[in-house]
Design a protein around this nucleic acid. Structure first.
Lengths: 123, 123, 123, 123
DNA sequence: GTGGTCTAGACCACT
DNA sequence: GTGGTCTAGACCACG
């Protein structure tokens, strides 16, 4: 499990974990029935609170990506990776839209917004 | 002063006020030496706490957009609108970059990200 | 009446007026029984609110420097200029003491405080 | 954390806290990465509102003396204590200058002002 | 547990 | 009237 935490990021730690595990599942690096590391193991590995890892796992479970067996551990559920990709695209779309709307609210021209976007994509 | 508050947004109310007043200043709808509505007036108008409006005004003052005279009111300071535009562009850039990085972290191809962006801009 | 208002100063306007009139009295530029300008006249001259001038005059009267005759105006009272000088010295002493105490609270050495003081006196 | 609040002072409580913490940092009693007491803890200790403590902490952070991590706490930032000393000296200088100017405005001789100053320093 | 935001209302100083 | 400070308590998000 190569999970990288950026504690100075504005994105909450638990969300960073959720995002990365989702992607691992979609990429096939985590397959159906694979066991995730235990809450305590991962928390020690990442040097964060076990409660934070648990919150991430809870989110994954409530979204259907994992199933937790009491006293045994957390396992990757059967997933439709196509569906997951769609979901992630929707999330990206929402983020992009919000950024664009903010730019327009600031009175920045669409041309300038496009230029900025392309600059970032190329950089 | 047409300020619109979205109380269900994750963006704090005081920040929404700050953003909108900054934009009003940059657009020339609020000119140098113009008086902002008093803290109490605006708080009644927006049906929010006076403290929340004050926090917004404090932020504007500490960033140099306004000057406050005790017992008199809050006024638009002399500002370099060029500089303000740059600042807002930087904010937009940061937002866009974060969205793009998230998309890539999700394993979405750059082509797909570009398509999504253009779709939103045209829609 | 040469009164100078610094509206960007931290010292309240009414206090600036009080201070300057006190000094005019002590220097003999305003003598016993001299009439002060009317509240409205002075407020127009200084381009400030009449209420602010009134507050200054009220202060002067309550400290015994002036007497106000209803319907006529405000006049300089009989004063002991020696006493006034003492009072002003005490005020200066209090201000200096507060500044010095602050410096010491900041952990600035007495030598540095003295150096600063002399620098200002000479500059 | 020995912080002393003088609630009858004209100096706002939050500013008293800011001043004293700045000094603790400059004196090395608070070192880089040290945790400040939590907002709630300090507010109980000083028997003041949590909001007042938070306002102090916000000020410290916006001036770069501390960093706050959501859900974790407030920590002393890496600071240039030399720079801080300079800043505090400037503040002292401004206070002394204002006192001296007031004395001169009162027509008190420079010799008298110096005498007063030395008396206070020795006392 | 932590900080972040918001409320409703109080009292004060200045104009 | 204005802004400046403070309170006591609420609800939320994060760890």
């Amino acid at each position: 499990m190569k999970i990288i935490i950026n504690s100075s990021s504005m994105v909450p730690i638990y969300e960073q974990i959720v995002d990365q595990i989702k992607t691992l599942i979609r990429n096939g690096e985590l397959k159906e029935s694979d066991a995730l590391p235990s809450v305590r193991t991962l928390s020690k590995e990442l040097k964060i609170s076990a409660l934070t890892v648990k919150k991430a796992y809870d989110n994954l479970e409530s979204e259907g990506f994992t199933v937790t067996v009491h006293g045994k551990g957390t396992y990757v559920a059967a997933t439709n990776t196509e569906l997951l990709l769609e979901e992630q695209k929707k999330e990206l779309e929402a983020d992009l839209e919000q950024a664009i709307l903010k730019g327009r609210r600031y009175g920045i021209s669409d041309e300038d917004i496009k230029s900025l976007f392309e600059l970032i994509m190329e950089g």
